[in-house]
Design a protein around this nucleic acid. Structure first.
Lengths: 145, 145
DNA sequence: GTAACTGCAAAATATTTGCATCCTT
DNA sequence: AAGGATGCAAATATTTTGCAGTTAC
């Protein structure tokens, strides 16, 4: 086991412990999948990558726990396919998801642009704005070449 | 049958014919539900409002046809619940859905703010932007009072 | 040891498909 | 009359729930 791998193990355990989640095989595995993928993942793609090793129900419960504890956040989309991505600075019960999400029409990946914050948008009188999420469709850097 | 009702009937038939959809009971009913509701609707709420009169499968196929023909558009959300709203100026195969959508955390309604257009957002070099969708969470006018 | 987590079975829900019949044009 | 739309039945797929056994702490 190389040093890089070991430090990743430690990092994963820390993320879980900080949220009061016990460190189990399935959680380590699913979290490592997120850490290895910069793009957003669906339940289906996680189940596939995790292999036969984990029960489908465990994947559902793990994603739910991760979302509640602020490890991942759900990303808006127009289909019925819930996507999740790693949170940068989320806490339990509080998601900092006000950055832009980019959906590439070529490769189909959804990417968090953590550094691009949502703009403030002037609404008509009478609305209280709590959170602005932006979903941009287009062609990503890799696909545009 | 009053004049208002009659003109609505005519309006509905025109919308369907313009898209080369034959004018059937289920399509008239579902389209009338959309016309009567300013907020976005899920498959479930449409099925409920249509009553026992129509088969569940017909509702699926009707919504799919409406979306393809540009009568309604799907609205992004973070749950797994597809929402649809009437298009203002959509054509077959081309949705003008670049306006802001507002999700009220109090009443749960999703509202199209047709007059609030999506801002242009500067992205890092290398992305091609085709479409910007904005989803705002907050409290709507009715709930804020 | 105890509380939390997992896997299995099964239920509940949601969505899709094929086909015979009916309706719109 | 012909093609498209619907309803029904059934196949798939997705998500949730309960519970008994297992694991982390």
């Amino acid at each position: 086991m190389g040093a890089a791998h070991k430090s990743n193990e430690i990092r994963i355990a820390e993320i879980l412990r900080r949220r009061n989640l016990s460190v189990t095989d399935s959680r380590k595995k699913i979290l490592s999948i997120f850490l290895a993928h910069p793009d957003a993942l669906t339940h289906g793609s996680i189940e596939k990558q995790a292999g036969e090793k984990f029960d489908r129900v465990t994947v559902y419960r793990t994603l739910q726990a991760f979302e509640e504890k602020g490890i991942i956040h759900a990303i808006p989309s127009s289909d019925n396919n819930k996507r999740y991505a790693l949170c940068k600075d989320c806490d339990e019960g509080h998601h900092h998801d006000e950055h832009v999400h980019f959906l590439c029409s070529s490769c189909g990946k959804t990417i968090c642009l953590d550094d691009v914050v949502s703009p403030s948008i002037p609404l008509p009188e009478g609305y209280r704005v709590e959170n602005v999420q932006v979903l941009i469709n287009g062609v990503c850097r890799e696909c545009k070449g």
